[in-house]
Amino acid sequence: MSPILQLSEATRRVLLIDADPKRQKHLRQIITRVIGAPETRETLGALEGGAPYNLIVAHYEGLDAGDLQRLQEFSAAHSEPKVLLLSAGTMRAGLPNMFGTKSLTNLLATSGDDELDVDGLIVTCQKILRRDIFGLEKYFVWGVPTRTARINKSAEKDALLAQMQEYASQLGIPQRLANLFETVVDEFVTNALYNSPVDADGKYRYASTSRTQRIELEPDEVINLKVCCDARRLGVSISDPFGSLTRSTIIEYLAKCFRRGDGQVDNKAGGAGLGFYQILDALSHFVINIKPGSTTEMIGLIDISGTYKDFVTKGKSFNIFVVDG
């Protein structure tokens, strides 16, 4: 009989670090069933030279400064950071330190009682491992209708925001959550129109242009916006055909904003340097997918299953994925 099911993919070595036995067991089960049995440790300990892991999953709250340093070195030694931190941190507690010290690029929220977003864990692990990163659809089950809009000039932004307000109002979600959605769309569109476009030499075309000055992209340079919603989350994505955003740019801007120092708000020509910070504040899960020189896609998910208080109590997830051309 010929096998109909190929049982193993290429071996993926996953290291799971969690000192809590119950939580470790739960995580190990999920990873075993979706990727393959991970190695487990209670603490990070030493990462021997060239530690041959495709992915390290660890609870941020269980790591000390030395652990974070070793994880950063591990990330830096690989072309793609392959560390996924789990954390219950929120905008007001936990995240300022994590982002202020630039210690992460992949973060998955656990709520206060350590409840894990299992779907989020699976999607995130697979995106890290498989390098198939694009698409809002990955975060929703099949059957959820997606609506799309195309924009290529700043004069269209107000009309688009009006449509999105209408869409959010049809969903019947609390006004405070609808306001978050509007903030995200506004910042996504402004970023895509003004910060993303580059010329043939890779120079930013409108980054220093006043946001009150209207701009129009070339006819073939279209920004695509998608929205969809299920009972639990409202999703929005925006993609541009430039792929000019870099991991370090995002991390630097977020670090600057979380540090709350004198330079928190940029006073240069162009944007205020607060966009990513405002977006992260308004989202439950912020994903940035980059194919350099080709595409940047930002995905935002807002947990609409409860009130604003429920939204702000839960942790935040944040990922940057970069694939080579």
């Binding site: 402004t190 708000v265 944007g271 205020a272």
Partner: peptide, 14 residues
């Protein structure tokens, strides 16, 4: 005031 976007924050600070 209903909403303040990122560039609005800078206008406000100025």
């Amino acid at each position: 005031i209903k909403r303040i976007n990122s560039t609005g924050v800078r206008e406000w600070i100025n």
